[in-house]
Lab assay of single mutants.
Amino acid sequence: MQAFVKTLTGKTITLEVEPSDTIENVKAKIQDKEGIPPDQQRLIFAGKQLEDGRTLSDYNIQKESTLHLVLR
């Protein structure tokens, strides 16, 4: 499924993900596309910070959801 990641600069990245993907996995995909190390990434969805060990389905993130990427 497709999900979108919006950065603070307003850029939107499109990712191909599965509901079973972990947040860690998603961060690795963002690193592949953008070169941002996962340890600098914080992903926010519905106002919550997403934890590495959880999956997209844990957070009820469905296709075409938009996550927000904040860098630390």
Rank of each mutant, 00 (worst) to 15 (best):
I30W: 00
A28C: 09
K48T: 13
G35Y: 03
L71S: 08
M1T: 04
K33F: 08
R42I: 15
L15M: 05
E51M: 11
T12M: 12
L15K: 00
F4M: 06
Q41K: 01
I13L: 09
A28P: 00
D52A: 07
L50A: 02
S65M: 10
Q2K: 14
E34D: 05
Y59N: 02
I61V: 09
I30R: 01
Q62L: 11
K48M: 13
E51T: 07
T66C: 07
D39Q: 12
G53E: 10
G53A: 10
I23T: 05
G35K: 06
T7L: 15
Q2H: 12
K48F: 11
D39V: 09
V5M: 02
N25V: 14
L69D: 00
D32V: 13
E64V: 06
D52H: 06
L43G: 00
L15S: 00
L69T: 01
Q40I: 12
A3V: 15
T22I: 04
E34M: 15
T9M: 11
N25T: 14
L50S: 01
E51W: 06
E51K: 10
A28F: 13
A3C: 15
L69V: 05
K63V: 08
G47T: 04
E18C: 12
Q41G: 03
K63P: 15
D39H: 13
M1Q: 04
T12A: 04
L43D: 00
I44S: 10
K48N: 10
N25Q: 14
N60M: 08
K11R: 12
D52Y: 04
L67R: 01
L50G: 01
T22Y: 08
K11G: 07
E34P: 01
Q49P: 11
F45Q: 02
S57M: 12
P38E: 07
L50R: 00
I23R: 00
R42P: 01
V70W: 10
Q31R: 13
V26C: 03
I36A: 03
A28T: 10
T55A: 06
G47N: 07
K27E: 01
P37T: 06
D58G: 04
G47D: 06
L67C: 01
P19D: 06
L69C: 02
A46R: 15
T66K: 06
S20D: 11
S65E: 09
E34G: 06
I30G: 00
L67S: 01
T66N: 05
D39K: 11
L8I: 13
T7F: 15
K6Q: 11
P37I: 05
E34A: 13
K48V: 14
T55P: 05
Q62C: 08
T9K: 10
F45D: 01
I23W: 02
L8M: 14
A28V: 12
E16M: 14
V17C: 06
K33M: 12
D58M: 06
S57C: 05
A46P: 01
K11V: 08
R72W: 12
E64F: 13
F4I: 09
G47H: 05
Q2R: 15
D52V: 05
E24G: 12
P37E: 07
V5C: 04
S20K: 09
A3I: 15
L71E: 07
D58L: 03
T7N: 05
Y59K: 01
K6E: 07
Y59A: 02
G47V: 02
Q49G: 07
Q31F: 15
V17H: 01
L8H: 14
I13D: 01
V17R: 00
Q40L: 12
E51A: 08
F45M: 06
M1N: 04
D39M: 09
L15F: 07
K29R: 07
T22K: 08
K48W: 08
E51P: 03
R42Q: 13
T12N: 05
Q62M: 12
M1G: 03
P38W: 11
D58Y: 15
P38C: 09
G10N: 05
K63W: 10
L56Q: 00
T9H: 13
M1Y: 12
D21Q: 04
R42C: 14
L71C: 07
P37F: 05
L56W: 04
L15H: 00
G53M: 09
L8R: 13
V70F: 14
G10W: 04
K29M: 13
I30Y: 02
P37K: 07
H68M: 13
Q2D: 05
R42F: 14
A46G: 12
F45A: 03
E64I: 06
Q49D: 15
K48S: 08
V70C: 09
Q41D: 01
H68N: 08
S20Q: 10
Q49M: 13
T9Y: 14
R54A: 08
Q40V: 11
E18I: 11
K63E: 12
K33S: 11
Q2T: 15
I61Q: 02
V26R: 00
T66S: 06
N60R: 07
Y59F: 04
V26S: 00
D39N: 12
T9P: 04
G53F: 11
N60G: 13
A28W: 12
K11N: 07
D52N: 11
Q62A: 10
E16C: 14
A3G: 03
K33W: 07
D21P: 01
L8F: 13
F45C: 04
K6M: 11
A28L: 15
T7I: 12
S20V: 05
P37R: 09
Q31I: 02
N25M: 15
R54H: 13
K29T: 03
L43Y: 02
T12F: 10
K6G: 03
T22F: 08
T22R: 08
L15D: 00
T12S: 06
K29H: 04
K29F: 06
P37V: 05
K11Y: 13
K6T: 12
E64D: 15
I23L: 04
N25L: 13
A46T: 05
F45H: 07
F4N: 05
T55L: 08
V17P: 01
S57G: 11
V70T: 09
P19I: 08
G35S: 05
R54W: 11
D32L: 13
Q40A: 10
V17W: 03
Y59R: 00
K63I: 07
G35T: 03
Q2V: 15
F4C: 06
T22V: 04
G10Q: 04
Y59H: 03
I23D: 00
S20F: 11
K29C: 03
I61C: 03
N60V: 05
Q49V: 15
E64S: 10
R42N: 12
D39R: 11
L56F: 04
L50F: 02
L67M: 09
A3W: 05
I36D: 02
N60Y: 06
K63Q: 12
I36V: 08
L43H: 00
P19N: 06
D58A: 05
S57L: 11
A28Y: 13
A28I: 14
K27I: 03
H68L: 15
T12P: 03
D39G: 11
F45L: 06
I44H: 10
L43V: 04
R54T: 07
R54P: 03
E64Y: 13
V70M: 11
F4K: 07
D52G: 06
V26W: 01
T7R: 06
L50I: 04
D58W: 12
L56V: 07
S57Q: 13
T12W: 11
R72V: 14
L15W: 01
G10K: 03
A28D: 07
I30E: 00
R72K: 14
K6V: 14
V70E: 12
E18A: 13
V5W: 02
G35V: 02
L67E: 01
E18T: 14
L67Y: 03
L8A: 14
L50D: 00
I23Q: 01
N25E: 12
Q31Y: 15
I30K: 00
E34I: 15
E18R: 14
E34H: 08
L71A: 08
H68D: 07
